[in-house]
Amino acid sequence: MLTPEETEALLLSLRVSGVAVLGAFPFALGLGLLLARPGFPGRGLLNGLVHLPLVLPPVVMGYLLLVALGTRAPLGAWLLESFGIRLVFTWEGAALAAGIVTLPFQVRAIRLALEAVDPGLMQAAETLGAGPLDRFVSVTLPLALPGILAGAMTAFAAALGEFGAIITFVSNIPGETRTLPLAIYTAIQSPGGEAAAARLAALSIALAFAGLGLAEWLAARARRLTAP
């Protein structure tokens, strides 16, 4: 039903998106925790920075990554020389681009999930003998978890569709950086590729629906848990 190249593109997409979401998660959690803190100074600025990828053209994100992490850029050169890490033209680079572009989805979901936890429950836990970390692990996290997972799921679905930042930063290399959207683009560009493009597009739509459905289910669970 799918050609080997198409299967490769599908599996690559799942891997790139999975690594993107998991890799960005610790940062998203940290940012979400900071932004959920009412007294945190510089909250507005940080909030703006985190949401920048949502409004910036993805091509610009890809361009910025290329400028910062290209093998001749200082940071990129240092990574290559010190650790042998090359991000340009690799699937890891694609994951980095997708992770940054979909970070706002995760941060936003985490922040909202944390803010939805009733502070009164924290006080109750406090009077019952729980310290700050204990309260976070035993009350905040379990109550916020469905919301956090829903955010991760949304980010995963969005990462599957990332095109501009990936093609700009890591190009369109079959088997390495040619994810589903890039494969669709390539098929449309090639003579006689319409059928392949249609198949891959249908596949993308199905994946997006599955991802959003799962996210919706998790969010519903979150609402049930945090309802008073």
């Binding site: 009733d118 429950l121 006080q123 009077t127 379990p142 945090t226 309802a227």
Partner: peptide
């Protein structure tokens, strides 16, 4: 032992 007006039981 603080018993709050709204009970504040842990819903999970």
């Amino acid at each position: 032992g603080y018993v709050f007006q709204e009970a504040r039981l842990f819903p999970h």
